[in-house]
């Protein structure tokens, strides 16, 4: 017992000050991609050709990036001869609709909060059931990490629960394998209405690096109505936390300071 107390002292207080302070991210962190189309060479399609998931489409001079397919890898950036592609440190990536993930130069339309009634229900207590349906355990790991003392998800009233019957919604990861489709749908049915669905990671949104394989459904698609899309491969824990808080309207009055 004294050992445990001594260890507790040594381990210090480790919960980050977010959202009062911005998180510290590594300098090589690949956040929101920035494409400066004005630098593009005429007829150059090198980035689109290099993209492993065909997330980049070039139509005449316009470059369109589908963040839902993006693996946030380095292939486009290193293929670009003009240095037109960079990754910003911006970890805020969550949106409310699939279309909002289609970026064309302009800034991302970040997720708006749920409607007033849903916020009254979920705003201060949101219980989520996680279902991995072909996830590689990276998205799952970075969801799990939100429960550690670093992020302390519980302080926002958000918690992962064991039974879908105790949950207000599902957090879905993975490309939705055919072998998990029916279990996923059963879990969704078991969640009492009103309920929300959150798609985490490129696989759940688009099939990610496995898009097109007949063994999967290329993400949730129209299988379930999705309320929040959190892109990334996997998304950083801060990206996920930001998305959850944004959905609950917990960041609204802070936008000016952040």
């Amino acid at each position: 017992m004294p050992n445990a107390l001594f260890a507790r002292l040594e381990q210090k207080h480790r919960t980050i000050a977010y959202p009062d302070q911005e998180p510290t991210l590594p300098d090589r962190f690949r956040g929101l991609p920035v494409i400066d189309a004005s630098k593009c060479g005429e007829g150059c399609r090198d980035c689109a050709a290099a993209c492993p998931t065909d997330a980049i489409a070039i139509d005449r001079e316009r470059v369109r990036l589908d963040l839902g397919r993006c693996l946030f890898c380095d292939d486009c950036r290193s293929a670009c001869p003009e240095g037109a592609i960079t990754y910003s440190q911006d970890y805020r990536l969550s949106v409310r609709t699939r279309e909002d993930l289609m970026m064309e130069g302009e800034t991302l339309k970040l997720a708006a909060a749920l409607d007033e009634k849903s916020r009254r229900l979920f705003g201060r207590s949101l219980k989520l059931r996680q279902v991995s349906a072909g996830g590689c355990n990276a998205c799952e790991a970075d969801l799990n990490v939100l429960g550690t003392i670093v992020f302390d998800l519980g302080r926002f009233g958000i918690q992962f629960v064991a039974s879908p019957r105790h949950a207000d919604g599902l957090v879905v990861t993975g490309a939705i394998t055919e072998n998990m489709r029916s279990a996923l749908l059963t879990a969704y049915e078991a969640v009492p209405a009103p309920k929300i669905v959150i798609a985490v990671g490129a696989c759940a949104i688009s099939g990610g690096p496995y898009a097109g394989n007949p063994e999967i459904h290329d993400g949730i698609g129209s299988l379930l109505p999705v309320d929040l899309y959190i892109p990334g491969c996997p998304p950083h824990p801060m990206t996920i936390l930001d998305g959850l808080l944004r959905l609950l309207g917990r960041l609204e009055n802070r936008e000016k300071t952040i």
Binding site: C51, C73, G134, C139, N213, E215, I216
Partner: peptide
């Protein structure tokens, strides 16, 4: 088998630009 994404079958005919990404996420940890 619930997590089966057809990775080995999809690798046949490669390597393609996607191969290394499919391998990296075969077991994400």
């Amino acid at each position: 088998g619930y997590q089966h994404r057809g990775i080995e079958r999809s690798l046949i005919g490669g390597p393609t630009k996607r191969t290394i990404h499919a391998i990296e996420a075969a077991a994400g940890d």
